[in-house]
């Protein structure tokens, strides 16, 4: 079984993710050290916070260049969670900096008119609809697929073939994407009971 390297770039709740990986029988380490990350067999990019803060920490630590090499050149599987997913896109309305640009997508802010009575952030449990066959969420495995979300910005993917799941909040948005070895989820599997456990187990098995 591969060890998952959880990238510590100074933001995010890393122990929650590690707790769940271990609970479902996986192995993981948390690291910010380039010499350790370079040996990763599988990667996890967590993150909570602002887009520019995330990108500038990835860049200044040298992790960005290393990730480009590992993920794009060497095809190491990676799962981005929440901000980690958003950083994989080209750009975000939340900031000025360029994203990692692995997925043709941009990050937009939720805007609702007053009549819709929808609060921002989108916080709580919501359903995801599986829109393509994928390695992480199997249609029909549970009666429904529910995950915990907390975010004010959402991913708008340009290629529908990249969209793995859709979720409705005011409108449909891409709540998970996958492209070859790259996976991103807007929700928090590490905080989503058995639904998150199934997803994490499948990522461990890839």
């Amino acid at each position: 079984m591969n060890t998952i390297t959880i990238i510590d770039y100074g933001i995010g709740n890393l122990n929650s993710v590690a707790n769940m990986i271990r609970y479902v029988g996986g192995k993981c380490i948390i690291s910010s050290d380039l010499d350790t990350i370079v040996k990763a067999e599988k990667l996890l990019l967590p993150g909570v916070g602002a887009f520019d803060m995330g990108m500038s920490k990835l860049t200044s630590s040298g992790i960005k260049d290393l990730l480009n090499d590992l993920v794009i050149q060497r095809g190491i599987p990676i799962l981005g969670i929440c901000l980690g997913m958003q950083l994989m896109t080209q750009k975000s309305a939340e900031g000025e900096l360029e994203g990692l640009g692995w997925i043709e997508a941009e990050v937009k802010k939720f805007t609702f008119n007053g009549e819709m009575n929808l609060k921002i952030p989108h916080m709580g449990w919501n359903n995801v609809e599986v829109s393509k066959d994928n390695l992480l969420i199997k249609e029909g495995e549970h009666k429904e697929h529910r995950f915990y979300f907390v975010h004010s910005y959402f991913v708008d993917a340009k290629n529908t073939t990249d969209i793995m799941c859709l979720t409705r909040y005011g409108h449909d948005f891409c709540s998970a994407f996958s492209h070859q070895n790259i996976f991103g989820v807007q929700f928090h599997p590490e905080k989503s009971h058995k639904y998150g456990m199934s997803l994490m187990k499948k990522f461990i098995q890839i």
């Binding site: 122990n15 707790n19 769940m20 609970y23 915990y148 907390v150 590490e190 905080k191 989503s192 998150g196």
Partner: peptide
């Protein structure tokens, strides 16, 4: 507690 909690805390 956090180690046992697989929901937001």
């Amino acid at each position: 507690i956090a180690g046992e909690c697989f929901m937001p805390l």
